Amino acid sequence: MDIETFINKEKKLKKVYYIYAENSYLRNKFKEEFIAEFIPEAIRDFNLSSVNPGDEYLKRLKNAVQTPPIGAEKRFIISHFEEGDSLNKGEKEKLLDIFKNINQSSTLVFLTANKIDKRKKFYRTLKNHVLYQEFETPRYGDLDQWIVSRFKEHGKKIDKQSLKILENMFSNKLEILNSEIEKIVTRYPDKDKISYYDIKKIISREKFIEDEEIFKFLDLIGDKRIDQALLTLKEMLNRGVYPLYLLTMLKNQIELLMQVKFYSQYTHDNRKIAKKINKHPYPVKKALQRSRNFTQKELEKILEEILRANYHFLTGYYPDQNTALEMIIIKSIAY
């Protein structure tokens, strides 16, 4: 269930909403939509408060949910747990007590990035006292629909090539994706359909180098086409792309190839492998094709060479990083 559907179905407010979403974009979106739908602007100054983790968190939360509303029927409290926030076992028990004893005129929205182990007693007890709801970060085909729907909200369509470019560049990092989509629709207020070339004018040049040229360059390495790979490398370096940046991209790609090659022993379905390693199916499909050019041992040797070079780059061992990177590429293709 998506956030809009959930909000629209809520006719009678509950005392506690316990909302899990690993992605901060979704947690913030729920908070914004809940406030817009259920909390009149006229009462927000005195009857809407935030209580977030920190010193004496549970004491502050307990006081907030027990405080009666001022000049209104309801008081609303929002508590937001980010990725680094957590509670120990004893604190969780106290949190349950707060949920159980919340004031009848209060509604608490508890947002968390921490997934609950549903086999444990905490979850079973929790379900008796709160409305528990999870919102999963969209992946694979759902991510396609999410991007399309974001453009649709602005009255725009997006072609398939543009859709894949955005997915490959930002994966399911919804905060970044949303920000880039906002930039695109703001730049083209009168266009009904956004094309690849429209996007290319908006997204930063560095990101397009990453998505277009670097992946073509990595394809050449995967195909062991040494002359063309070195020519492409020189062109990128001449345009000012940092050697260490290229080295990092190469490391990421080799690690992906190693993961995909390992799981290809069991299946050649790129979607199944993508789910195993939590990646989008498209780059996994490309990696499956590239991985056929290497043995697992060759990939391990290349990664070892890259990690050694990375250390030397950072310590200043190589005075000429461009030449050093060329030598690393030659070694990589030679394995």
Rank of each mutant, 00 (worst) to 15 (best):
E4D: 10
N8V: 01
N8K: 13
K9I: 02
K9F: 10
L13N: 07
K15F: 03
Y17R: 01
Y18P: 00
N23I: 04
N23H: 07
N23G: 05
S24K: 12
L26D: 05
R27N: 02
R27D: 04
N28V: 02
F30L: 02
F30E: 05
K31I: 04
I39V: 12
N47Q: 07
S49N: 13
N52D: 12
P53R: 00
P53I: 06
D55C: 05
L58Y: 04
R60G: 10
Q66M: 10
R75H: 09
S79N: 09
H80Y: 15
E83Q: 15
S86C: 09
L87I: 12
N88E: 10
K89M: 13
G90R: 14
E93W: 05
K100Q: 15
N103F: 13
S106A: 15
T112M: 00
T112Q: 04
K118H: 07
R119S: 11
K120M: 11
K121H: 08
F122C: 04
Q133R: 07
F135D: 02
T137W: 04
Y140F: 15
Y140A: 15
D144S: 12
D144V: 03
W146C: 02
W146A: 01
V148H: 01
V148T: 05
S149A: 14
R150V: 02
K152R: 13
K156Q: 13
L163R: 03
L163D: 05
L163K: 08
M169Q: 08
S171D: 14
L174E: 00
L177M: 02
N178M: 01
I181T: 05
E182T: 05
K183T: 02
V185D: 01
T186S: 09
P189Y: 01
D190E: 04
S195V: 00
D198C: 01
I199F: 04
K200I: 00
K201S: 08
I203S: 01
R205C: 03
E206A: 03
E210Y: 03
E212H: 10
E212V: 02
E212Y: 12
I214V: 13
K216W: 00
K216A: 13
F217R: 07
F217S: 00
L220T: 09
R225C: 01
I226N: 01
Q228E: 12
A229D: 06
L231A: 15
T232M: 15
T232I: 10
L233D: 05
M236N: 11
L237E: 04
N238G: 10
R239N: 12
P243G: 06
Y245N: 00
Y245D: 01
L250G: 06
L250A: 11
K251Q: 12
N252D: 07
I254V: 14
E255V: 10
L256G: 09
M258E: 13
V260H: 05
K261V: 03
Y263Q: 12
H268A: 12
D269A: 07
R271G: 00
R271D: 09
K272D: 14
I273M: 10
K275N: 10
K275R: 14
K276R: 13
P281K: 09
Y282K: 11
P283S: 12
P283N: 05
A287Y: 14
Q289L: 03
Q289V: 09
S291G: 06
R292I: 04
F294V: 08
T295R: 02
T295N: 00
Q296L: 08
K297E: 09
L299D: 08
K301Q: 12
E305V: 05
H312D: 15
F313T: 07
F313R: 06
T315N: 07
Y318H: 11
Q321H: 14
L325G: 08
E326T: 07
S332K: 11
